[in-house]
Amino acid sequence: MLLVPCPNCGPMNAADLSYNGESHRRPDPKTCTPEEWRTYLYLRENPSGWLLENWYCSSGCRRHFKIERHTLTGELRAPVLPGRKPGATQGDMK
């Protein structure tokens, strides 16, 4: 099982977190076109490679955070709390 570093709790078993998927920007609901809104709702890059995604420390501190994960190798970079910029690669936990 992957160890996912929560910015608060440190490395956690992935099963103790909730996965909220690919991170994407929410369009302005007042002005967006149906196409823009449904791109946000449904279309996904789904890369085989590095992906910025949302996790929720649901069995720990209950913080939502973003982390870059390589979807093939499972490598992880440093987590960030929302509103902050993704940082450099974190030291290897493995």
Partner: peptide, 18 residues
């Protein structure tokens, strides 16, 4: 499994997560 990758090669984004 590779549907998104291949479609992206044609410039088509899909509503898929793998």
């Amino acid at each position: 499994g590779w549907a998104s990758q291949l479609s992206n090669m044609a410039g088509v984004t899909l509503p898929i997560t793998t």
